[in-house]
Design a protein around this nucleic acid. Sequence first.
DNA 1: TAGATTGTTAATCGATTAACAATC
DNA 2: TAGATTGTTAATCGATTAACAATC
Lengths: 212, 212
Amino acid sequence: MEKDSAKISMAVIRRLPKYHRYLKDLLDRNITRISSKELSKVIGFTASQIRQDLNNFGGFGQQGYGYNVDALYDEIGKILGLDKTYSTIVIGAGNLGQAIANYTNFEKSGFVPKAMFDMNPKLVGLKIRDIEIHDIDTVEKFIQEHNIDIGIICTPGPQAQSVADRLIKGRIKGIWNFAPIDLTVPDEIVVENVHLSESLFTLSFLLRHNQL
Amino acid sequence: MEKDSAKISMAVIRRLPKYHRYLKDLLDRNITRISSKELSKVIGFTASQIRQDLNNFGGFGQQGYGYNVDALYDEIGKILGLDKTYSTIVIGAGNLGQAIANYTNFEKSGFVPKAMFDMNPKLVGLKIRDIEIHDIDTVEKFIQEHNIDIGIICTPGPQAQSVADRLIKGRIKGIWNFAPIDLTVPDEIVVENVHLSESLFTLSFLLRHNQL
DNA sequence: TAGATTGTTAATCGATTAACAATC
DNA sequence: TAGATTGTTAATCGATTAACAATC
């Protein structure tokens, strides 16, 4: 069904979660079919772009009819890998790490936090929900023994690269990085950054250059 | 000095914080000058792109010499509006809201949290650091009386639009939105989204389509 | 069948990269 | 001055939009 995914551009990939979210909304409103033109109105992409995007992955529509919302939602979920579950760990048990570990919506989507890690001995042994905070020195072993897929780095910048190195030693598959640095990792490790200050500074730029 | 900012593309704008961050690193390493070619090596953009980007805002370099790191860092800081301070409020005093309010790095960059707001009466009156949690019903008044620039929405999705409406009534200038929806706002209001699940789903896609 | 709407090719637009004259 | 490197124009590349034949 799916064409060679190596050719899918990041621009397309980053739109997929938005399709997924809006299709869920439509489902919740009991809308069972939608044309690219109607979808364009709610999601804000052009109808042409919507058809182009979807056709990277297969012909999900039907001429004269449009798309079946339920089926398309499922397909995009599969494309995003949301039909699988992932084991995650959170490194850095400060405010942000705790917030992420507590955010049950991720778990509902299949991203299950198995443990947290911190270097602060005062935090080790504590639990956030059911999730225990372990000593950072045990992280490589934990990843291997529990087959962890994703490491979520919530440490300050200066620790982040050495944490990433440990995760990689433990054979992590992907890293969700909240630390304000660009990690150096081998090609086979996937990194997705959430650079909060870059986002805030962008807002600052737009405020300053908006009207005046 | 600055050319018409209306023409600056979002692609360029989103690279500016990264220049700012890397120039800070260089400064900290006591590097006083750098060519676009050297900067290209550390930051990962092409030298050509670096020169193009910077020349959107002015000729900061010098032929045969390169760029003065200190001066360029300052210039980009100004372009980003980081020479000013901003008053912020956080709406939604859950884990994420508290984490954001607690994150002192933003304050160091000039984004000063003045208050938090929540609809839960049990939270109203509590303090995070020095920041008091107020009743959400008082938010419009607070914005006007304290001249708040930025509202940071950390509520669940379903409340986010009505919170945004209140912020706009209070004459907020910009919104940093962590709720998983796309807000509807008037043209003059700047919105910057941090859609965490979109980021996580992107990571999921990349994991699934990586090797295999 | 006639109307609607897709899938897909072609045209356009915008962003990135290359090249080089200007100049420090 | 000679060498280095910018600022900027031109060329290329990629992404978006438009158009339309295919077809449900």
